[in-house]
Amino acid sequence: MSKYLIRRVLQLVVVSFVISVLAFLLVHLLPGDPSTIILGPNDTAANRATLLKQLGLNDPLWQQYLTWLGAVFHGNLGTSYLNHESVTHILATGAPVDLELIIISQTIAFSVAVPLALLVSRRPNRPLDNVATTSTFGMLALPPFVVAPILVAIFAVGLGWFPATGYVPFTQNPATNIHDMILPSVAITAGSIAVYFRLLRSDLISTLQQDFITMARSKGLSGRRIMWRHAFRPSSFSLLAAAGINIGALIAGTFVVELLFAIPGIGYSLVLAVNQRDYLVVQGIALVVAIAYVTIQFIIDFIFTIVDPRVVRE
């Protein structure tokens, strides 16, 4: 067990290092520099050169990288060239918003997909199963930028149940905050429901044909107990793996709903920073989002070892 964990942690460290290089190069190898944005297009070449020197943008790339990385290890991701806001502050205010969106949407996705899959997989190809399978297949074709405006048109503009835009911090008014977050969270949920339901359903159908299920049935266990205690765990491996991979799509989804619902998350800051060539902000956000992403995958791998101890032995 510990050997497996050590190997995975080492992998995580290597991947994080490569991510830091990629995040750095991503921004520095691309054309354009921030001097035009800071000084405006009409400033003199001399001023421009002084500025580039001040910002350290004339140093060799490796030196800039090491300076940046050294600061990162001290918890300093730099400050925005434009409004002098620190990158850690931007992340500290934006990240909780995105995290809340993702947590609400995944809670909805699992609480719809898991019971539905457990319900229909006992009697596959009956009308209920066909309805569930067909409708979740449709949900695969509903990315957030398609479904979010439709939800707003129906539930905010038409019925007026939810606000079309607006955000109140959780600490200020939890009830309003959750109410405001429901529509954007639902908008990024469709794809997750579809993927989780389809994987769990097909795995459950094959698990239910195994001998130990017949055995449990012949012992006279109730259907519900068989589904939850005996069939669910051995069928949940693909589900877990998919949940990890899905985080990438969710990040893109949060960017869309942030824009549509005017929610101040990370995506909004990222798009803004990219447009203004705000190197350190883009670099910092790319680094933190990517590392959060691989860390989540690492945690899911760890949960895997609990659900399926065979992973460690291999």
Binding site: V15, I19, L22, L26, V27, L30, G248, I251, A252, F255, L270, V271, V274, V282, I285, A286, V289, A290, Y293, V294, Q297
Partner: peptide, 12 residues
């Protein structure tokens, strides 16, 4: 693949 594509694509 560990790098979230959308972030890289937006920047590039």
């Amino acid at each position: 693949l560990a790098f979230p594509a959308i972030v890289a694509v937006i920047a590039i």
